[in-house]
């Protein structure tokens, strides 16, 4: 259970691929930490910093916005609408997550 394989893909590139120690991702409702052996999960992403802790120490950081992540067994797939090393001046419209509509939808169901 010590392995977690991560693949971070945006529409135009694979940002990161390989084994990691842990990942902290910006989910729609707050930051979510994922360690090896995490239960299967699909979560919508918001925008913010994606931190990948490497197995040998050290970490990689990306700024991501929009998308979804999926954990299944040892595989973690992170799909982002926008991903890059820097916070962009302007996000592409496709990466706009429109949090209000998600919140409305969540609350209206409860």
């Amino acid at each position: 259970m010590s392995e977690l394989q991560v693949r971070v893909v945006s529409p135009d590139s694979v940002l990161y691929e390989g084994p990691v120690a842990s990942v902290v991702a910006p989910a729609w409702d707050g930051r979510v930490g994922i360690l090896p052996g995490h239960a299967p999960m699909i979560a919508l992403l918001g925008s913010g910093e994606l931190t990948i802790d490497l197995p040998g120490g050290g970490s990689e950081k990306f700024f991501v916005a929009g998308g979804v992540l999926k954990v299944e067994g040892p595989d973690l797939m992170i799909l982002v609408e926008y991903g890059g090393a820097e916070v962009p001046e302007e996000l592409p419209a496709s990466a706009d997550i429109d949090m209000a509509s998600i919140m409305d939808a969540v609350e209206s169901a409860d």
């Binding site: 989910a27 729609w28 409702d29 979510v32 239960a39 299967p40 999960m41 699909i42 979560a43 919508l44 929009g66 998308g67 979804v68 299944e72 609408e81 496709s94 997550i97 509509s101 998600i102 939808a105 969540v106 169901a109």
Partner: peptide, 17 residues
């Protein structure tokens, strides 16, 4: 699977994407 938020809401975002 843990779904966060519910499947419908995730799909609402993902289908247009």
């Amino acid at each position: 699977f843990i779904l966060s938020p519910r499947a419908e809401i995730i799909l609402r975002k993902l289908l247009p994407a």
